[in-house]
Nucleic acid binder design. Structure first.
Lengths: 230, 230
DNA sequence: CGGCATCCGGGAAGATACTG
DNA sequence: CAGTATCTTCCCGGATGCCG
């Protein structure tokens, strides 16, 4: 028994798991290829169609359109037209859409233990910021307070750490104790692969301004879970 | 740039997201259709091929074979042949495979807020037990200790509640304060739709033995998150 | 340029039948 | 019972083109 197209504001993929389990329903909603990665890119705020294409190399315009329609149909995002001038269209998660972040975190925590995980692959700035939220260790950050700026591919991000908490947002860099300028993979190399900042700077992959001490402390706050033993 | 087939013990699906993000890698590993639901059914212990087919109506034998091969290839499960006599083959999650449960929980918590979620669809006994683990509210269970048995479709399950914690396992029913006999959807109706036990018993959908008070308290311990406002 | 429609090739998923 | 074989359907990815 297939679910037919509904007549309300929502739509389901043609194939349903037909299962009352919440996880199965989630996969009905966002289990199609690229759907969760589109949501991932929107987790730090609205983006335009071309921003999404740029952040998700490999997705075709075709499929991106379908996913955006689907995610809008289930109520996970809305498309908004910004007021003129500009009048560009942006896609923005709904409050419920933003609540999908724990799904991405659970997936990420689990998969980084896989021996097949290749941290040298491309990484979007948004993924990097979300990985900070996921992997942040309050114990290692005990007594540490800092405001770190990131200038990654033309967009600015701010990470604030204090009281054992972390915030990460796409926002102008203001009052930063340290600023990283470069690419998301370079920062990931420092944070997750332990590449010394000096090496990355010598390679020209990264520029670090502000307090070196703070930058050096920052990159130690995100321990990866141990790899599984093969 | 596609990933080529690796020469080690692991295999990846032909299409990779080519993304260092942990969530993207997770979707490379278990993002194919049915993969996470196969893992869900194995969360309470090993099962045979035909058990999985029965628990996942809608999956075809060849797809199940492919998923089992894939999950074995990534190291999420192993196939074991039980010692003779019997000598049946079973599929069992690895320790890392069991660690995927938070993924299912995050998916379930998020999707039950969708207005499209239909709790009247079929539900496997394992899904029901996992939903207890997911939705259990320690506050509501304050001061409550109980051992509840479930006889669902020929298999027995035990849920133990105490000290604000819950355990759920496929296990013989022993020293139970109350025992539910019937189908998983019927129990779900009592727990998640608030159908009174007396009604379900009058319909013949459920039989409740043991202490009624404990059974009636039990079904109040699993509040669903509120639906999103449409 | 942004967004969407259309066509096509390849491959995954679904249904059914069959075998050790 | 535990899969395999075959066939069909449909999704995905790529390319092209239209239209504001």
């Amino acid at each position: 028994m297939k679910l037919e197209k509904t007549t309300n504001a929502y739509s389901l993929p043609g194939r349903s798991y037909d299962d009352a389990c919440g996880a199965a329903h989630a996969l009905d909603l966002v289990g199609e290829r690229w759907a969760l990665l589109v949501m991932r890119e929107l987790m730090l705020g609205p983006l335009r169609f071309s921003d999404l294409r740029a952040a998700l190399p490999g997705i075709s315009a075709n499929v991106l359109t379908q996913r955006l329609e689907g995610l809008e149909g289930i109520g996970a995002l809305v498309r908004r037209r910004l007021p003129p001038p500009g009048a560009v269209q942006v896609y923005e998660l709904t409050p419920w859409g933003y609540e999908a972040e724990p799904i991405l975190q659970a997936l990420g925590r689990w998969a980084t233990r896989s021996p097949m995980h290749d941290p040298t692959l491309p990484l979007s700035p948004v993924s990097l910021m979300l990985s900070f939220r996921t992997m942040f260790d309050p114990v290692r950050a005990d007594g540490f307070e800092a405001r770190i700026g990131f200038r990654l591919g033309g967009e600015d991000y701010m990470v604030r750490i204090g009281k054992g908490r972390i915030e990460a947002a796409r926002a102008p860099i203001e009052n930063a104790d340290a600023v990283f300028t470069g690419t998301a993979p370079a920062v990931a190399g420092a944070v997750y692969a332990g590449v010394p900042l000096a090496v990355l700077e010598a390679d020209g992959a990264l520029e670090v301004d502000g307090y070196r001490t703070i930058a050096n402390r920052f990159v130690t706050l995100f321990p990866l879970p141990p790899k599984i033993q093969t």
